[in-house]
Design a protein around this nucleic acid. Structure first.
Lengths: 245, 245
DNA sequence: TTAATAGTGTCTTTCAGACAATATTAT
DNA sequence: ATAATATTGTCTGAAAGACACTATTAA
């Protein structure tokens, strides 16, 4: 970096201005389906289109900007236990027609939340099942696809599936998270034994749920997240040989 | 995003200016050691310190900016076969004392390259073994640490170890890549059989190296990269139970 | 009672890792 | 000749996945 390059950037009027934003792909599970938080755009461009929640970065870290945007859209209902991680950054020159916008995308996992609309003040945000999302503004469909890839992969190697659940949960609820995110059912017995065999994934609370399954069955034991940050050995998805190449 | 927010960002003089840069963590293997490409800074701040190569993003994609910076530092010696991927973005407010700088970091894997100094024109870049890197300018030591984590992990799940090698290589050379990146030796026999058992990792050229090992041994067969993008099953690092928590 | 569910047991196959054996080549 | 190296073979234990079984509870 030469001096004149830096000075040119330091004097914004002498250089193409760049805006830095964050966009958040917030995922949750509602009624057994993986859902993403979307907003409806009011202004041009893409007025009336759905988009990921996001906005400009202020005098704050990128993580703080993402958390702030998420809190603004979900309101007071947002629990402290949300998992938030950086996804990747999108900066293709014409991705926003108004100016050069570099957007740092974030991925969030949240337990099932009340509908933001129901909160009284008319938030423009709502949860949409990911398999019903069609077109999105800007390159947000691409960002969402990357986020789903990441989320599916994260469930293999980390215990983050528990971030979609309340502090205590049953093995069946945990399995339902995997089923919703991966889009395929898992064998109940093998899943149960596998989760318990991974050190630090979950720990027993010693208590059981207040009632059995929806249509019968014994009361399930309750678990809480363990202290592991990585699953070892991993909980791999059913093999899809063809997607490897 | 409200109108006034966007307009404030659109008019750079009315908003805190933000500079967007790319920084590249370029890794290669020289003499069996994992090395990173560094430059020596001429100007303040951090004058005389070592830093990752990088610079401002122009009218180009982020990927193109990273590739350009890498080519500028390594010169004509840079092969087309370099692997380049986005690492993550660093934007803590005070990471550059001059102004708000958001840096998109990239990770590159390159085959062993001639020393950039030797190219005639005095490039300021040079390869340094990663275990000899001490202090770096800005938050570059942090970026490098993240890059090494990513690189070590990538070798488990992808065939990218071949990106450190010429188009044809022996099994021993491939094993040396793993040993250099992971910092531990691997069992030759088990590694050999494992690599051949993963579909699409490598394919045989049918030829053998012109001579045997350094101090004797048969001529090794030559392989080239296969068509897999992911290794399945993965080639996992020797287990380190303690790093999991 | 009936059907669904929670949890456990067993078997087979695959794979990682330890170890051994053999053939080939530089010195 | 000697020692190092490439490659293959064998064995053991861990783990995944298929399947079966028992106990418990909602309706």
């Amino acid at each position: 970096m030469t001096d004149e390059e830096f000075l040119a950037a330091y004097d914004p009027s002498a250089f193409t201005p760049v805006a830095v934003t964050v966009d958040v792909v917030a995922l949750t599970i509602r009624a057994g389906r993986l859902c993403v938080l979307l907003v409806e755009r009011g202004e041009s461009p893409y007025a009336g289109w759905r988009a990921l929640p996001g906005g400009f970065v202020r005098e704050e870290t990128l993580d703080a900007a993402a958390l702030r945007e998420l809190a603004e859209e979900t309101g007071a209902a947002m629990p402290a236990a949300v998992h938030l991680e950086q996804l990747r950054t999108y900066g293709t020159p014409q991705r926003d027609p108004r100016m050069r916008v570099v957007s740092v995308a974030y991925l969030a996992f949240a337990p099932s939340l009340p509908d933001p609309r129901a909160g009284g003040d008319a938030s423009g945000a709502f949860w949409v099942p990911v398999d019903e999302v069609t077109e999105l503004a800007f390159d947000h469909a691409h960002i969402l696809a990357d986020a789903l890839d990441r989320a599916r992969s994260k469930l293999e190697y980390t215990p983050l599936a528990t971030a979609f659940l309340p502090p205590e949960f049953t093995m069946t609820e945990l399995r339902a998270v995997y089923a919703a995110v991966w889009g395929e059912d898992l064998h109940a017995g093998n899943f149960h034994r596998k989760v318990l065999s991974v050190p630090g994934f979950v720990e027993s609370t010693g208590t059981t749920a207040s009632r059995g399954g929806e249509r019968g069955g014994p009361k399930a034991r309750l678990y809480r997240p363990g202290d592991a940050h990585l699953l070892h050995p991993a909980l791999l998805r059913p093999t899809r040989e063809d997607t490897v190449r």
